[in-house]
Every structure is written in structure tokens, then in C-alpha cells.
């Protein structure tokens, strides 16, 4: 059953990033970067390859420690959380890797079962099975349940990776270049799947991308990352009409 997204502008943000900085040696990737994600909102972070987009979402989920700044996710200060508390917050955040990162020694069923068994106390085998079938049906791949990831195409693997993030019913999903490496048709299918998942599961999302078709279709708001800073932020249409050459280069 689909429900409409509940993006209400002006609500308290589910992710609030303030003054975030991250450098690798002398190479500064993020420099005083700030961004807010409101509940129900889908925000796309647009930037050139190597501009630090993936570093940004890895900092949000606590995979990379930032050098300075503040990241508040669902009211929790990610940078200063202990390991166990961080794990509790991570359960509420889905992360779709660019490489899909499916566990290649496990079947699709085991891939989906793995996070669920760890975080859903007392779930029966029957309930677990029905939840697996449910998310697989949502991504249109229920027939792959006993297959290995290596038997699936790139687009199918992406769908399964999305199903794995959905199994814990996250409040926020972070997508790392979801359409990169896919053919245009599959890319469109994944974009449309992301949109329908956002509505159905009522999640907020940050999508890292430089695929303009995906940006146009999925974004409520677009933030442009240039030289480590949030250069500007607006709707897709507003940015498309901008005369600023730094912004225009993405829409040409």
C-alpha cells in the first residue's frame, strides 16, 4: 500500500550538518560544509567526481571520522557517540553502496536475514520469511530469494541492495550514486524504484549523484558541492534556470 511522502518544509531536520570539514593529508575534501535534511525530504547532493560526495555520506553514517564540525542524525551527535549507541542509530539509517556491497558468500535470503536477525529481537522464522518476501516483492525480485549475488545482473544487485536497506525499515536512506554503472534504461528503473520506495516507506533520503535524470526525477531539493562547500541549494527547476556558470555546468 502506497502512502504519500510526508515532506513538510520547516519541520525539524532529521539530519543536520554544520561546519563539517574533512581532509586526507593535505587534500581538503570537505571545508565548512553545512546541510539540513528535513523529514520526508529527498535531497540530492550534486558534485563532480572526486568532489567529496561519498566522503560526506560516509561521515554521516560514521564510517569516516570528520576533522571538524557537527553531524546530528535523528537528534544524535554522530561524532561523539560510543560504538554501541552509534550502532543503534545506524539501524535507523539505510545505506545503499555504489558497489552494492552484497555479501557474496551468502544467498539473497541470507543477505536480507543478516541485518534483520541481529536487530529484530524474538522474530520468528515465519515472520522473518514473510518480511524478506515483502521487501523482495517491493523491489520486484522475489524469485531470486535462493540465488547467489553473483548470479544477478548489476541492476538486480542494486535492487537487492535496496531491499537489504529496507528490511530494517529505516527512517533515512543514504544512496551513494545509485545509477552509476547502469545502462540508461536500468538507471531509470532504479530511479523510479527509489521514488516509489520513498513514498511507500515514508523515508527521508540523501542521494549522491551526478546523473541529471536521476536528480530531476527524485530530488525535492538539490545541493551543489563545490570545493568542499555547499555552494548553493534549491529545487531542480530553480537551479536549472540559474545563470551562475558554476551551477550551469551541471545542467548543460
Amino acid at each position: 500500500m502506497e502512502t504519500s511522502a510526508t515532506y513538510i518544509p520547516g519541520e525539524s531536520p532529521v539530519i543536520s550538518i554544520n561546519g563539517l570539514s574533512k581532509a586526507f593529508g593535505t587534500h581538503v575534501v570537505l571545508d565548512d560544509f553545512s546541510l539540513q535534511l528535513e523529514r520526508g525530504q529527498t535531497k540530492v547532493v550534486l558534485g563532480r567526481s572526486g568532489s567529496g560526495k561519498s566522503v560526506l555520506i560516509k561521515c554521516i553514517i560514521g564510517l569516516l571520522p570528520p576533522d571538524a564540525g557537527e553531524i546530528i542524525v535523528l537528534g544524535n551527535d554522530i561524532i561523539h557517540l560510543g560504538h554501541d549507541e552509534l550502532d543503534e542509530v545506524r539501524v535507523k539509517i539505510g545505506f545503499l553502496f555504489q558497489s552494492n556491497a552484497l555479501y557474496d558468500s551468502m544467498t539473497i535470503r541470507e543477505n536480507l536475514e543478516f541485518p534483520m536477525r541481529r536487530h529484530t529481537v524474538g522474530i520468528s522464522d515465519k515472520e522473518a520469511e514473510s518480511r524478506i518476501i515483502e521487501v523482495l516483492t517491493d523491489v520486484g525480485l522475489e524469485h531470486t530469494i535462493d540465488m547467489m549475488p553473483s548470479e544477478l545482473s548489476g541492476g538486480m544487485q542494486k535492487r537487492i541492495a535496496l531491499a537489504r536497506t529496507l528490511i530494517l525499515r529505516p527512517e533515512i536512506i543514504l544512496y551513494d550514486e545509485p545509477t552509476t554503472g547502469l545502462d540508461p534504461v536500468t538507471g531509470r528503473e532504479i530511479t523510479s524504484l527509489i521514488k516509489s520506495i520513498q513514498r511507500q516507506y515514508n523515508t527521508s533520503a540523501i542521494i549522491i549523484s551526478h546523473d541529471m535524470k536521476c536528480v530531476k526525477a527524485a530530488a525535492d531539493s538539490v545541493a551543489i558541492l563545490i570545493n568542499g562547500k555547499c555552494y548553493t541549494e534549491n529545487t531542480y527547476q530553480a537551479l536549472k534556470q540559474s545563470d551562475d556558470p558554476q551551477v550551469k555546468q551541471f545542467f548543460e
Binding site: D87, I93, F95, L102, R118
Partner: peptide, 8 residues
């Protein structure tokens, strides 16, 4: 990393 972000 996928294991880590899923809270395992």
C-alpha cells in the same frame, strides 16, 4: 563497511 553500517 556494509556490515558496519547495518549495525553489526
Amino acid at each position: 563497511d556494509a556490515m558496519e553500517v547495518s549495525g553489526t
